[in-house]
Write a protein that binds this DNA or RNA. Structure first.
Lengths: 252, 252
DNA sequence: CGGTAATTTGACGCTAGTCAATTCATGTGG
DNA sequence: CCACATGAATTGACTAGCGTCAAATTACCG
């Protein structure tokens, strides 16, 4: 992919010093936004200025790199990102893709250094929450703890889902499941669920699914051949949702 | 395997009503035991009687079943357990094995019902902590929160590790990595790390590693052939740790 | 000691990886 | 606005590794 990898400096992001940003009031994601609830909460006074709805950042921006000291967690407002680890033998492993409302950084919970790197896949806006602030908030009340735990549980479930998908699944099954996952997550974030835009490369998808890039191409081809989806480069239309679901769950 | 699956009733486990159990004072795992710290903590009075170091329970005991309302988390003191999910098509997926000091139930965090089933692989003793009590404790102080988060982070890391292992790994590599993982975890729990006892069946191992049982047999055979390990049924000796590590990290 | 389940071993086929070539998309500079 | 360059994506041919089926052997438990 070879994106220009700009650094993301936490400072000078155009975040307001005090008070809730106006942007939050207009944000369509407030329902499922943990940072905004940080502001709403009774703990407001201790947390004001904590949430920084940043200005849009370009594709290729590095939120953080594996091994750096862990500073903050992030929440996606618009756009998308990918996370990846380099294992001990230098191989890159795509661990996840992040869409609006997703929390970024759970893998680095209680770790001194980030366990993975995160890069924006397109022009995106994010909210940044310093780790200590989030921990404090989680202790402040039962409802805040609940919201925080819910986000963590989501990350854990995503991790499990990704793993189960690798267990006993053919290439077509994995690809079908991948498309459905994106579809559902977009739906949950209030988007159209039948028209997908794959902001990541085929190589990223392949790596994420434990397959070769060529296999992704062929699987897309087969799915299109059978009329279940329509492939137009990075744009994918889900034509037959139920059929796709059947494929995701069938083969072994 | 077809173990007699006895139910585990939470009640009448021989747990003392008040005060810390004497068993805890003698327990070799206190250092890494979260339940015991629940007792030690400043929150002691609110949590007394919370931790129930149970009497040993036989192999095949079901701690809980997928779909049941989530009551408690568990911590392994002696023995071992496995967790597994049944996916929408009826297929069983082994999600993890639990050894002394491990926390059981993180996958069901913030879920109304257990997301998986857990069965003991041998005669074992466990500590049970009701979910609400643990959540309360996690809010009570920064150090308690830290301990709790550390356990959750361990579960998350284990999940990741299991997933990365499935990514770009040959059968031999997965098996080697699996043995090393057990070895390290036993070591962390204060046991001998070169002599493994595999309390789970070959089928469980295979499922856990996303392979066929026959492939596990063959991989063990190859590893023994090359003098890296010695296989004696369920007992495995690691003869050449570094060589095993090299295998776990090599192939693709 | 017998019966059952677990494990090992063997033979074979299929799926997906690899290598290689081609087409397509994207972005750049004239 | 077009030609070109570069990387992404697709397609094809071939191969290796693992799954599957089946049989033999071993371990386990009453």
């Amino acid at each position: 992919m070879e994106m220009e990898q700009r650094e993301f400096g936490g400072e000078g992001n155009g975040a307001p010093a005090g008070g809730r940003n106006l942007a939050c009031d207009m944000c369509r994601l407030r329902q499922s936004c943990l940072p905004d609830h940080l502001n709403d909460d009774a703990t407001r006074h201790t947390l004001l200025g904590l949430v920084q709805p940043g200005v849009p950042m370009p594709r290729g921006t590095v939120l953080y790199r594996q091994g750096e000291p862990r500073r903050s967690f992030y929440f996606v407002r618009t756009g998308s990102a990918k996370s990846f680890q380099i294992d001990e033998y230098g191989r890159e492993n795509i661990m996840g893709f992040y869409l609006p409302t997703d929390m970024i950084g759970v893998a680095s919970l209680e770790q001194a250094d980030y366990a993975e790197s995160v890069v924006l896949l397109e022009r995106s806006t994010l909210c940044e929450v310093p780790a200590e602030a989030l921990a404090t908030a989680a202790r402040s009340s039962e409802s805040m703890q609940h919201r925080f735990f819910t986000k963590m549980a989501q990350s854990f479930a995503a991790e499990r889902h990704a793993r189960v998908r690798l267990h006993h699944a053919s290439a077509d099954e994995r690809v079908a499941d991948f498309l459905l996952e994106l579809s559902q997550r977009l739906h949950a974030a209030g988007r159209v669920e039948s028209a997908l835009y794959l902001s990541m490369s085929r190589y990223d998808i392949a790596n994420y699914l434990g397959l070769a890039a060529e296999t992704i191409s062929r699987a897309f081809g087969r799915l299109q051949e059978s009329g279940v989806i329509a492939v137009k480069g990075k744009a994918i239309d889900i034509l037959e949702g139920p059929a796709l679901r059947a494929i995701a769950v069938r083969n072994g």
